[in-house]
């Protein structure tokens, strides 16, 4: 076996795993969850770095604040993206905890009958996904308005 077998796997890898096109809503939320998770991780590192300057004394802290302030609108946009990420990652994370730790929203094991509709992706799960999305978008808009207000635009 295997001499003329392709060692490379067909259509695999990170980008593939983040590409939910053609699949179910859960896979789309998986992609969003991963991306928002990475954004939050990067933010956490930056945040620790920022707080570290606070420990260095008032001068260093003033400088850091000035540096962030010099970013102008970009600081606010960054914060807005981070707020959205935190909202989505948190809310969707709660849904996943219900699924994974408590086995909820999945339905019971059933006798499969054609046409097969997996109960784990059925009504309850979809309601949870869309309710989360609605709440997150509403709060995200609110956060955006709050940030704009801080800029004195509205």
């Amino acid at each position: 076996m295997g001499e003329d077998k392709k060692e490379k796997r067909y259509k695999t890898g990170l980008l593939r795993s983040l590409w939910p096109y053609n699949f179910n809503a859960e896979r789309y939320s998986y992609t969003l969850h991963r991306i928002t998770g990475v954004i939050l991780a990067l933010y956490l590192i930056a945040h620790v770095f920022e707080i570290y300057h606070f420990a260095l004394g008032p001068v260093a802290w003033e400088q850091t604040i000035a540096l962030l302030g010099s970013l102008g609108i970009w600081e606010k946009i960054g914060l807005w993206i981070i707020a959205g990420s935190a909202l989505y990652h948190g809310a969707n994370g709660l849904r996943l905890i219900l699924n994974e730790v408590f086995g909820m929203l999945l339905g019971k094991p059933v006798l499969p009958e054609y046409p097969y509709t997996p109960t784990s992706l059925s009504r309850n799960q979809k309601i949870a996904i869309y309710v989360i999305l609605a709440i997150v978008i509403a709060l995200w808009i609110w956060a955006g308005l709050y940030l704009l207000e801080g800029l004195g635009i509205i």
Binding site: R27, Y30, L96, F102, P112, Y116, T119, L121
Partner: peptide, 26 residues
């Protein structure tokens, strides 16, 4: 497994492996 559910979505026999995996975690 982070419960993307794509396995259950495509399974041609209605096995719903994603459900089994979440129960397994529990």
């Amino acid at each position: 497994c982070h419960f993307a559910g794509a396995c259950s979505y495509v399974c041609p026999k209605g096995v719903d492996p994603a459900k089994a995996i979440q129960f397994l975690k529990k």
